[in-house]
Design a protein around this nucleic acid. Structure first.
Lengths: 340, 340
DNA sequence: CTGTTAGCGCCTTCAG
DNA sequence: CTGAAGGCGCTAACAG
């Protein structure tokens, strides 16, 4: 159906090999005159190289796979944009898969990418707590066959990646909040089966403990806007009357959760931050448009994606890098001193 | 390097053809015993079909391409999620490309997808005003070779797609605002070279005119948050003192622009909506978290994406459908009656 | 410098 | 029902 290289070669009156050489970056450069003829023929016929055939003949597809949990989540879409930027004009194409937080879908995605023989896979999704054995085996298999794996977030033993030091970041964030005067905390810890979620909560709590602060409430739930909305609603429902007297600072393990929490606070008729201070984690772009401005731990999301993309291109050593977030206190954690 | 079907066949002691038949959905089903042996061998060896080879031998890659302007923009990421949902578990893989609003990058993306022999291409990006001749020719070429094209937003003569009736939607939105009592309008019309931008502004303006409302100011600029921020800043700088007395309603041709506009209003010390009402278009998910809640014309973004995905799967007729947005007045356009 | 010729991994008639 | 063989479109030695 489509025009083949053979057709172009015939049209130009040269051999297949010659046509191939001029149309693709071969080391050997045919004569200028011939080249022009071939290019003209290709143009005239509307020739498009068949990437599949090329991939088969060479040994590399110029394909890389990116798996995220939900592409509509600003956290992931920002990373995705970064990856694309990182890939730049290398001619590498991006295959995208979303897992919807279901481990099996992550495995499916990786299998699909393996079948596509992607040169690399960037995992930015749901690193579960128990390092799904199945996934690990798959990845190992993939690597043995020359596949490159870059993990964003949690580190994975055998792979390269951009690790986020969630624990330290949370500790620092807690430190800043304490320094700002907060003394009473609640943690919306998200899904305890997700490493990211766990580490962020743990870091925060351990800092509190080390500082000798009173016990706080910890709520679990889905690592999502809805999850936080419900967790916060639960908290508001059960909190004791005397708690209402003093401003409490609620740490959510992600900005998206903070957004859900704020919604719940507002619906209950309370104010942020006067009645309840809310703090997030990530610094997703959305925060720019939210009032009050939300305190968070800033992660260079787009750059992280870009680094991942560049890492993939450099095709090199499975380099590892560690990123620690920066606490950014904004209005949502303003201390309400005159409360009681 | 990787395990081939041949290896599996050998391991199982059967022929290549047989192995192929059991491992892939062939019409002819080998004996159960044989099948099990083959499957066991495949499992043991860690076999993954080579999608490229399959694509070459069959005549279809199970690949579809999606081109957006910016995957980090909630409008596009929501559509992207919809597309993925629409594709469901059909086994189709999604290739993603972002154009950054540059027409040439859109063309590059389409060329790349054509090379990848994607079964279909969903265009959700920058339909320029002058229907870039290059793009049209490419698309035509693609279709002649059996490629399916689905366009989201602007309709394209020869292709199917989900058309958004921007003009009518804007008219309706204007109607609602007028009914709500607004009389003084400003339009941040975005990029006049983008059809989407144009139609939205035109619809709005024509409705105003038809209603006999006084002339309003129209500002052009980039079809983006920054563009709107600057346009709004310009407006605030040049508006006449007497205008400041009466609440004005600023219609932005997209929610993302509305967000930028609101930022500008706030930075100038004014309030939304008391001093300046702001209205957007699209109803991106982000709006859920913004205060005041933003009035807009609701488009079922995720569903639009889903429809596009399903359309692609049904492989059918290049169906066309038209979507008209629904005006949703929220707080950002509340009338400030007591302002003389 | 150009052309010829094996494959790359898999599917699919066509025989057996 | 199973096996053998040609071909999908292109690349990369190897000759000429």
């Amino acid at each position: 159906m489509a025009i083949r290289l053979t057709d172009v070669a015939n049209e130009a009156g040269v051999s297949l090999a010659t046509a191939s050489r001029v149309l693709n970056g071969s080391a050997r450069k045919p004569a200028a005159e011939i080249s022009d003829k071939v290019r003209a023929a290709a143009e005239k016929l509307g020739y498009f190289p068949n990437a599949q055939a090329q991939a088969l003949a060479r040994a590399s597809t110029k394909l890389i796979g990116l798996v995220v949990r939900d592409i509509a989540d600003p956290y992931f879409s920002t990373i995705a944009r970064g990856v694309q930027r990182g890939l730049g004009d290398s001619g590498t194409q991006l295959l995208l898969a979303s897992t919807d937080s279901e481990p099996e879908r992550e495995i499916e995605a990786v299998r699909a990418f393996m079948s596509q023989r992607t040169d690399a896979i960037i995992l930015s999704g749901s690193r579960g707590q128990s390092e799904d054995d199945g996934l690990l085996k798959l990845i190992e298999n993939y690597q043995e066959n020359g596949g490159q794996v870059v993990v964003i977030g949690q580190p994975l033993a055998s792979t390269g990646g951009i690790q986020v030091d969630n624990e330290t970041t949370s500790e620092n964030l807690a430190g800043e909040l304490i320094r700002a005067g907060h003394r009473k905390f609640v943690v919306l810890a998200g899904d305890e089966n997700l490493l990211t979620s766990r580490h962020r909560a743990q870091g925060f709590l351990s800092k509190l403990k080390r500082t000798g602060l009173a016990a706080v409430d910890v709520f679990h739930g889905a690592f999502s806007r809805e999850g936080a909305y419900m967790a916060m609603s639960d908290y508001l429902r059960v909190r004791k009357p005397e708690e209402a007297d003093q401003q409490v600072c609620v740490f959510c393990v992600s900005d998206v959760m903070a957004l859900g929490a704020i919604r719940a606070v507002r619906e209950s008729g309370l104010r942020v931050p006067e009645d309840i201070a809310v703090v997030g984690f990530d610094d997703i772009p959305t925060l720019e448009d939210v009032t009050p401005s939300i305190s968070t731990a800033r992660l260079p999301l787009e750059e992280i994606g870009r680094w991942a993309g560049e890492m993939v291109l450099s095709h090199g050593d499975a380099r590892k890098m560690v990123v620690t977030g920066t606490p950014v206190l904004r209005d949502s954690s303003r201390l309400h001193s005159d409360n009681r």
